[in-house]
Write a protein that binds this DNA or RNA. Structure first.
Lengths: 189, 189
DNA sequence: GTCTATACCTGGATAGAC
DNA sequence: GTCTATCCAGGTATAGAC
């Protein structure tokens, strides 16, 4: 991994752990093993480096989600599998946590990938729910859009609750609770 | 409002807007109108002041929730009313946002009120769901604990999605979606 | 491309006068 | 109780040598 790459990966890790405000150029340099001058040679400063890191993290999240969404099997099972997928609940969502960072939200360039990621994710899940309905697997009374939004919110909120508790149980319970609520709307065939 | 009080209230506002890491003693002083010496006369430093602010914010959240929980009417309606209650979605949850702050989570004193608040909230909602079940208003198949956790997660996640979008719609959709999911488990009487 | 030196600002706090 | 002066570390960046 070359220097530029190490800088980006170190920044991704630090943004996840400490957020934008809590991440200093110095910490990035130490973690990546790159020197002061080296970092400023590859990037104009903290914002540009953060942008590269955030973009990559957002792409990563979408790629993982898309893999679950396009797996074989009924749409509703794919939704459930996506929700149940293993996650590092205690670390929180690397994209969601950025919404709490005032400096990220204040900079349109940094904020855009965050916004796009959740917009994409919600739409994608809504499509799968609609597909399940047209297959006769899910009650047509559920509104796909709001339901999908609620599911994404359960994930994001599950992270928050896990961090608050310092334990993964609340995360697991939130997912289980959501799946229990969804189960009441399944339609047999 | 005396100086001490102004310091606490200013800190509450800043913690909500910028988090612990993003809030400096200087900013607190400017916002409260108190001087350097004045702040350090009333509090030993940023951590002690933050503790007072966080405790008050947590108490505040609980008091508002408890008001909704003890309102007249069927338990299930009280749950729905709590979820629908107006909130400043774009500002995020003043307690939930603290979970993203590494310094808050690292300090047991600061972290405790956050942890307790969500533990209490989840338990309280689970009790109401159980009450609704014993009244015959809610399907007994739903597990109250996980369901309550999912509902709290929807709120917390709704805030995240609203901030990501820079709009309140995702928050409203998440709540609406959750209520739609819950509606399928209502039992008439 | 990477290093070291330097610079300036802010964060967070203490000291002592009033 | 509040004010001003002062302090040191760290954040963020530039300059210039190698």
């Amino acid at each position: 991994m070359d220097t530029r790459e190490k800088l980006i990966e170190s920044t991704r890790a630090l943004l996840w752990e400490r957020g934008y405000v809590g991440t200093s150029p110095k910490a990035i340099q130490e973690r990546s093993g790159a020197g002061q001058g080296s970092m400023y040679h590859h990037f104009s400063g903290k914002p540009e480096l953060a942008l590269a890191a955030i973009n990559r993290t957002a792409e990563d999240l979408r790629a993982r989600a898309e893999a679950a969404f396009t797996a074989p099997g009924p749409a509703l099972d794919r939704v459930a599998a996506y929700l149940r997928r293993e996650r590092e609940a205690l670390k929180g969502c690397p994209v969601g946590r950025l919404t709490q960072d005032p400096e990220v939200m204040a900079d349109p360039a940094l904020r855009d990938p965050v916004e796009q990621t959740f917009a994409w994710l919600t739409t994608r899940l809504a499509d799968l729910l609609a597909e399940a309905q047209s297959n006769g697997d899910l009650a047509p009374t559920l509104a796909p859009g709001p339901t999908a939004t609620a599911l994404v919110a359960v994930l994001q909120g599950g992270y928050v609750l896990a961090r608050a508790a310092g334990a993964t149980e609340p995360y697991a319970n939130a997912i289980e609770g959501a799946l229990g609520l969804l189960a009441g709307h399944r339609e047999g065939r």
